[in-house]
Design a protein around this nucleic acid. Structure first.
Lengths: 223, 223
DNA sequence: TGACTTTAGTAGCAATATGTTACTAATTAG
DNA sequence: CTAATTAGTAACATATTGCTACTAAAGTCA
C-alpha cells in the first residue's frame, strides 16, 4: 500500500498510531516485520494528489483496519535524521482511536500489539509511538478520548476502568460518578448489561450537553 | 534568508510564530509585504543539512530577532493545499516565546504586530497563526508559558496580568496568589520595584519546586 | 431455599479548595 | 498632612473532592 519514495527521502510520509484498548491495556496496529528478526513498523503512506494530511491518515486507518476512527488528531511532524522504513525526510504523525473490540483481518500483515510489549522499531517510529501515547494521556481531559475508546454504549464501570487505564491509577467510584454527573456528559439508555455475577449495570451513551462554561480559576497544579 | 524551493513544492518548510506580550496584548513577528498591498508572512526557512526540525526553528528565531526563545514547541504540520509564500508542500510550524520587552532591529524587514490587528496572509499562515495562539492558550496550565512571556524577575501583579491576558478574563487577586503559593512555583528575590504611585511590589523569579504530584481526581469540566 | 459472594449504585460527612469581602501596608501627588 | 493608588493578607462563606459505609440486584452453591 505504501507510495513511492523514489528520490531517496525528499517527500514526507503520513504515519499513523492506531490505538484501541485490548485486555486492560492500550494496543496499537503494527505491520509485522518483512523478514525474521526485522523491525515492526507503523502503518504509513504518502499523500495522494489533492489529499489533506488528515485525509491521508483517515484513508490509511480505513485501509489497514477496515474501520473509520472514532477520533483522529495530528501528533506532529517528526524528522531529526531518525531512520524511517520508507526513508521519508519527515513524517507527519497522527493518532487514531478505534473503539474497544475492533477486529483486524487475520490475513493482513497487520496486528494489534500491546504498547508495553517489547518490540523493535526504527528510531523514528519509536519516537512517534511514545509521543502519541503521551499526547492521548495529556489530551484526555480536553477531548473525549476515553469515551471514543469505548463502544457507543458502555457501563459507568467500563468508563471508569478506561480512565484508570489512561491515568495509570485507581479512582474512587463515588467521586468519579459524581463528577461525571456534574459535567452532563452521559445519558442513560433503557438497557442493562449482566456481566455474569453481580447486579446488572445500566448502559450509558456519550451525549454531552455542551455547557462548556468550564474552568474555574487558574490551575498551577499541573506545572 | 529563505532557502531555495526549486522544484515547486517538494520540500517542507519550517514556519515560526514568535510571540511576545506587547501593550497588553500578544504580538507576533511578521515579515512586511514585499510590495505595497501584499501579504504579511511568518518567518520561515528550509532545513539545513543535518539540522533538526526544532534546530531550524531555533535558528530562525535567532536570525530574525537576535534572541533565543525562552520557550519553543512544535505546533504541528500544515499543508492541505493551502497557499504558502515559498510554495512548500507542507510546513512544520513552531511557536516561540520571547520575554516581554524584546526589541527588533528597526532595519530588518520584520516587525511586531498585534495578533488582533487585521492583516492579510496566505491561507496557510492564517491557519498556522490561529492554531499556534490556540495552542499557547491550551498549554498554559501544562507548561509555564505565562512565566516565559515575562522577564526573569517579575511582580505577582505582572504575572496575574499575563494570565488574564492569556485567559481573556479577570482573576481575583487573593485567589490567584493563594493558588500560586500552594504550587511552589515562584520564589521572592530581595528586590522591590516602585511603579510610580502605590506601594512597591516585591519581585519574584520562576523557581518551581518540582513537586509534580498534582492532579486530584478526574477532570470532566473541560470536555 | 437461603446464606454468601459479587458487582452496581448512593448517602452523608470530613477534608480541602475556591470565591469574595474587607481589611492593612507602603508609596506618590499635591 | 490627606487623598489616591497599588501591594498584600486575613477570615469567612461556599463549593468541590475523598472516603466510609451503606443499600440493591444479581449469581453461586450447600
Amino acid at each position: 500500500m505504501n507510495g513511492e519514495l523514489t528520490d531517496g527521502g525528499q517527500i514526507y510520509s503520513i504515519d499513523v498510531v492506531i490505538l484501541t484498548p485490548l485486555d486492560g491495556h492500550l494496543a496499537l496496529v503494527l505491520e509485522k516485520p518483512i523478514f525474521d528478526g526485522g523491525d515492526y513498523a507503523l502503518p504509513w503512506d504518502t499523500a495522494e494528489v489533492g489529499e489533506t494530511l488528515e485525509g491521508t491518515a483517515r484513508r490509511i486507518v480505513q485501509e489497514v483496519t477496515g474501520a473509520a476512527p472514532t477520533w483522529l488528531e495530528q501528533a506532529g511532524a517528526f524528522g531529526d535524521n531518525l531512520d524511517h522504513p520508507g526513508r521519508a525526510a519527515i513524517s507527519v504523525a497522527f493518532v487514531a482511536i478505534l473503539p474497544m473490540g475492533t477486529q483486524l483481518d487475520m490475513l493482513t500483515d497487520y496486528e494489534w500489539v500491546d504498547i508495553n510489549a517489547p518490540r523493535t522499531y526504527t528510531g523514528r517510529h519509536l519516537k512517534i509511538i511514545d509521543a502519541s501515547v503521551e499526547m492521548v494521556r495529556d489530551k484526555m481531559d480536553l477531548a473525549p478520548v476515553a469515551f471514543k475508546l469505548l463502544p457507543p454504549n458502555f457501563t459507568l464501570s467500563e468508563l471508569q476502568a478506561m480512565y484508570e487505564l489512561l491515568l495509570g491509577k485507581r479512582l474512587h467510584k463515588a467521586s468519579f460518578r459524581r463528577a461525571l454527573q456534574a459535567a452532563w456528559l452521559v445519558e442513560p439508555i433503557d438497557e442493562w448489561r449482566s456481566e455474569g455475577r453481580g447486579r446488572p449495570a445500566q448502559l450509558y451513551k456519550y451525549a454531552p450537553k455542551k455547557k462548556k462554561k468550564g474552568r474555574r480559576g487558574v490551575r498551577f497544579d499541573l506545572l
